[in-house]
Amino acid sequence: MGATVTSRVFDLLGAFDAGHRSLTLSALARRAGLPLATAHRLVADLRRCGALDRRPDGEYVIGRRLWDLGLLAPMRTGLRQAASPFLHDLYGATLATVHLAVRDGAEALYIDRLAGHVSVPIVSDVGSRLPLHATGVGKVLLAHAPDDVVAAALARLTRITPYTVTEPARLLAQVRRIRAEGYATTGEEMSLGACSVAVPVRGPADEVVAALGIVVPTLRRERPKLVAALQVAAQGISRTLARS
């Protein structure tokens, strides 16, 4: 049986990943394994329905409609609603960028963000995916991921900045510490000039369903205070999820 139109559409959408956020038509066709003419026709259909957008430079990116549809997934919709007031409280208390992320395969998917006034470089946005090993929320999610996900992450530790942890033994030691201490930190591992601290958010069955994090210029003096604030917020989100 040949490939269906649906499978070809998903092949095209699957051509995008964290390292390929925008693609030319020819790159899309090549990565999806489709003839250029077929890719051209399907991409035109996806643009018309808002699933893909075309930038001024001619490259294609994932469209807003896909993100809007993704937010309708019951777990993520309920999680964002439960977390929203606590994210606002954290932002109001710190004026720093606050993140809420879930694990999507071997990446951290950012499902909510409040941008702070603290002047630090931020590469994440709502809907973006970043490596688990280089972000605070990602390390929390990695620490509570199945063993096969941890093994896969340890096998491909890409260096993003000079401070990114790329030694498997060192990252595994961090994972164990995060499990024991209940929080994760990073120091300029995703962006120079940006540090982060994050904690797990647990669901009704005590499973880790998300990670809550803050990005600041430094953690030297503020780490205990930020960890405490994050943990209070995470507990509040968990209580709200348990009631829903």
Rank of each mutant, 00 (worst) to 15 (best):
R54A: 14
W67V: 06
G182Q: 13
H117V: 01
A106Q: 11
G14Q: 06
R129D: 11
L172C: 00
A153E: 03
V5Y: 07
L79I: 00
L172S: 09
V199R: 12
L46C: 13
I111D: 01
V5S: 06
F16S: 10
P121Y: 09
L71F: 08
D147C: 08
I62M: 14
Y163W: 05
V227D: 05
R55I: 10
L42E: 08
L12G: 01
I122E: 05
L241A: 03
R54T: 05
F10P: 06
R223H: 00
L25M: 04
D89M: 00
D53S: 13
V140T: 11
S22W: 04
E189M: 15
R8L: 08
G19K: 12
T158Q: 13
V150N: 03
V215M: 05
V126A: 01
V140L: 09
H20R: 13
D125H: 02
A145V: 05
H144F: 15
R80M: 10
V150P: 08
V118L: 15
L72E: 00
R220S: 12
R129K: 13
P121R: 15
L219G: 10
S128V: 06
A228F: 14
L69R: 10
S128H: 02
A44V: 05
D206L: 14
L36M: 05
G19Q: 14
A108T: 02
L71Y: 02
A18V: 00
A234E: 08
A93E: 10
F16H: 13
A143R: 11
L114M: 04
A44I: 07
L25Q: 01
L172T: 00
L13S: 04
V150L: 03
P121I: 13
L219T: 11
A32S: 00
E181W: 03
V9W: 05
I214M: 09
L12Y: 04
P200Y: 10
R8E: 02
L114D: 01
V175P: 02
S244C: 02
S124K: 05
R41C: 06
A115M: 04
G92K: 13
T185F: 12
G127H: 06
R80T: 03
L69S: 10
R221Y: 10
A73K: 00
A115V: 02
A93N: 08
C195T: 14
A211N: 07
D68Q: 04
R64M: 13
S84R: 15
R156I: 05
V9H: 01
G182T: 06
R54W: 04
S191G: 03
